[in-house]
């Protein structure tokens, strides 16, 4: 993660107050996360293993959102969730926020299903990656592109 010392140095007029209102951003323009930073964070989560793109994991997130402050997201993995075969963890990563991590959740066979929902903040339109850690040591990956439109008339 890079230093946030220059939070407004990015060129993202799209996320800046329109009409000259004061700034009310959730996130400053990305000072840090990049596709490389995201890859690094994923590698940390997988212990270096390469996750496989798989239809067994779904990343459900709207492709177009009116405001990046609160973006509903659901990640589900098709798994029997038994002692022998289950999902150990689910994580979500992003490319354009200051930090690549969004959430990491730990679950187990007692979860009964591998499904979590939350709401993310997205500083800009970007690609998100969900990764699931399986009990057999494999990692599954799903991706989604999200377009964040702007909110107008931000207040002062």
């Amino acid at each position: 993660m890079s230093s946030p010392t220059s939070p407004r140095s990015g060129t993202e007029p799209g996320r800046r107050a329109l009409f000259g209102g004061l700034l009310t951003l959730a996130l400053a323009p990305p000072a840090g996360a990049t596709p490389e930073a995201m890859a690094e964070a994923i590698a940390l989560f997988t212990g270096g293993a390469t996750p496989e793109l798989s239809a067994a994991i779904t990343l459900d997130i709207p492709s177009l959102v009116e405001n990046g402050n609160t973006v509903p997201v659901t990640i589900a993995v098709d798994s029997p969730m038994t002692e022998a075969a289950h999902v150990r963890a689910i994580a979500l990563f992003n490319q354009r926020n200051p930090q690549p991590q969004v959430i990491e959740a730990r679950l187990g066979p007692w979860s009964g299903a591998a499904r979590i929902s939350t709401r993310a903040r997205l500083a800009d339109s970007q690609r998100l990656t969900a990764v699931a850690a399986l009990s057999d040591g494999r990692f599954l990956l799903a991706e989604a592109e999200v377009v964040v439109t702007l909110a107008a008339c931000l207040e002062g």
Binding site: V71, A105, W110, T118, R119, R121
Partner: peptide
């Protein structure tokens, strides 16, 4: 039975759902 680490990229008023097998 469930644990989640949250980061700055989680929206205000954090919302979280998960599942559990009721035994």
């Amino acid at each position: 039975v469930f644990e989640a680490m949250l980061h700055s990229a989680i929206a205000a008023n954090p919302y979280l759902t998960f599942t559990l097998r009721a035994e």
